Simulated assay, not measured.
Amino acid sequence: MVTASLDLVYKNPDIGAVLLECSDLPPYAKDIQSHVQLPVYDFITLIKWIHHSTSHKPYHGFI
């Protein structure tokens, strides 16, 4: 997956992000992102984004 992603970005330098559309691919997201140096999105990212936007916790600082 990393090799395919690097090839895709090399052949299409205007790509601004990678979208993994298969449920088998999220485990590769970290490796892809670290190699292509672009944001990588998948359905887990979408689920987390929706969940966090609907279930805010009280802010108590960073410590």
Rank of each mutant, 00 (worst) to 15 (best):
H51W: 13
D31C: 08
T54W: 08
A4Q: 09
D7G: 00
I63D: 13
D14W: 02
P39H: 05
S34E: 15
Y41M: 14
D7Q: 14
I63K: 11
G61E: 08
T45D: 10
A29T: 01
H35D: 07
P39D: 02
S53Q: 12
N12W: 00
Y59S: 13
I15H: 05
A17M: 12
V18R: 06
F62D: 15
V18Q: 01
I47C: 12
L19N: 10
D31A: 15
Q33F: 04
Y41N: 07
H60R: 13
K57R: 13
W49H: 11
K48V: 07
Y41D: 01
S23F: 09
V2K: 05
K57Q: 12
A17G: 11
S5W: 02
N12E: 07
H35F: 06
D42E: 11
Q37W: 00
P27N: 09
K48T: 09
A17W: 05
D42M: 04
Y28V: 00
M1L: 07
P27S: 09
P27W: 02
I44W: 01
L25I: 04
C22H: 11
L25Q: 11
G61F: 05
D14Q: 14
Q33H: 03
S23A: 15
G16I: 08
E21G: 09
Y10I: 04
L25R: 05
C22K: 10
F43Y: 15
L46W: 10
V40K: 02
P13Q: 08
Q37A: 06
V2A: 03
P26Y: 00
V9P: 04
V40A: 03
P13V: 03
H52K: 12
H51G: 10
Q33V: 03
L38Y: 00
K48P: 03
I50D: 13
V36R: 05
D14M: 08
P39E: 03
M1R: 06
P39N: 06
W49S: 11
P26L: 00
Q33K: 13
